[in-house]
Nucleic acid binder design. Structure first.
Lengths: 216, 216
DNA sequence: AATAAGATGTGAAATATATAACAACATAAT
DNA sequence: ATTATGTTGTTATATATTTCACATCTTATT
């Protein structure tokens, strides 16, 4: 008999990916509540904002270990702290960014990522026009300097925002020099060794869903 | 007894959202194959590239109506055409973009969207510095001009790339003047009437998944 | 004090999605 | 021609996720 029950090998509860993907949305809402001076919030309120079932909210939150009080709801401050810690948004994780085009530049400029634990420590490109420039204090290097820099300032995450055609090439390089997880913003599918994590952020998937909802 | 069986009211088969989200990925791969001169591809090949079960690939493709040939596989050209039509990437859908910051600019510059059926016809902002400028032929207007423009050149999709705080305000305006679907790139949750479609593109969700995989 | 009402939290049921099993078939090899 | 093999496509099973039902608890009201 196979037992899974959301328990992984290490004995930790395996969080469903859909839950993991919803938590940052809640978090943003809770932060807005805090700014508005709200101290308590119920699963019903949350559910109505996100148009979902309130018990699903409860279940999602229960994974983080936060405790609510009957008839009162959850403490906003506590929700924020617990979720931030649960998602590792409080730890500082270094990342390299490959491909400083419009999207790459947008990501570096996006202060949000820093507040969510992601520290882009350097950018890389092949265009002499951007090499040695700085964006918000992040220096852009020639791709050839990657090896040296990855020794000096190691990073586990590589963000790929190159033109589609270069994605695989850059990914190979990144993996060769110690990147453990690749965040791929190109639509290109990337082949990596078994132990390397790849997360694809596909704008086109979202577009497909929108168009489908609009037309059907 | 409730019957769902993936059959919607209109009698059409309801496509699972996960399938819908995977199809653009396949499409990109098929386009690359075509450029490489490959004419046939099997579900097994596709599955190995995307590290998934081959029957799931078959199922996904079957929704689009494309037919493969036993022992041969699918015709690449045919796959591309069928998926493009299935996802409505061949129709031209107008969109307004609100908030011409780094991300907004990146999206307008991103030719990809045009090739996937999305036509950003105008940008809006409140910053006098960008109003009346042009990005790749897309004119940026004052937010106040939105009403007039939405009458002249109607669009069904509104893309929100404003600072978080303005998202709701802009969404209200967009809905008031006829936008049917909102593509929200801010982490802010947005309240809209029942009949309006909202699709949230949350970078933080992807980040949460990456960090979770890295650390657990 | 007792009762009512509104909330969390949990275990069971229902639904959705993915995997497995296999039949049907087309091509290549013998 | 016949057999072997690889591949599609479909039905059945397993797993994952969401919803439902309800017990429990906390506060407010009578």
């Amino acid at each position: 008999m196979k037992v899974r029950n959301n328990i992984s090998n290490s004995g930790q509860v395996q969080v469903p990916t859909p839950t993991l993907r919803r938590l940052p949305g809640y978090l943003s809402y809770f932060k807005a509540l805090k700014i508005g001076g709200v101290e308590q919030v119920s699963s019903g309120q949350i559910a109505s904002v996100f148009k979902m079932d309130s018990t699903l909210v409860t279940k999602d939150l229960s994974y983080t270990g936060v405790k609510g009080r009957t008839k009162v709801g959850y403490n906003v401050e506590q929700l924020i702290e617990t979720i931030v810690r649960f998602l590792d948004f409080n730890t500082r994780e270094n990342a390299f960014l490959f491909g400083v085009g419009n999207l790459g530049r947008a990501l570096i400029n996006y202060q949000g990522l820093q507040h969510y634990g992601l520290n882009i420590v350097a950018g890389f490109d092949t265009d002499p026009g951007v090499i040695n420039t700085q964006i918000r204090g992040v220096k852009i290097h020639a791709l050839d300097d990657f090896r040296d820099l990855s020794i000096k300032t190691p990073a586990r995450i590589g963000i790929i925002t190159t033109p589609d055609g270069s994605a695989q090439e850059v990914a190979d390089l990144a993996v060769a020099w110690g990147i453990k997880a690749i965040w791929n913003f190109t639509p290109q599918s990337i082949k990596v060794p078994e132990n390397i994590i790849v997360e694809n952020t596909s704008i086109y998937s979202d577009l497909a869903v929108i168009l489908n909802k609009l037309n059907h």
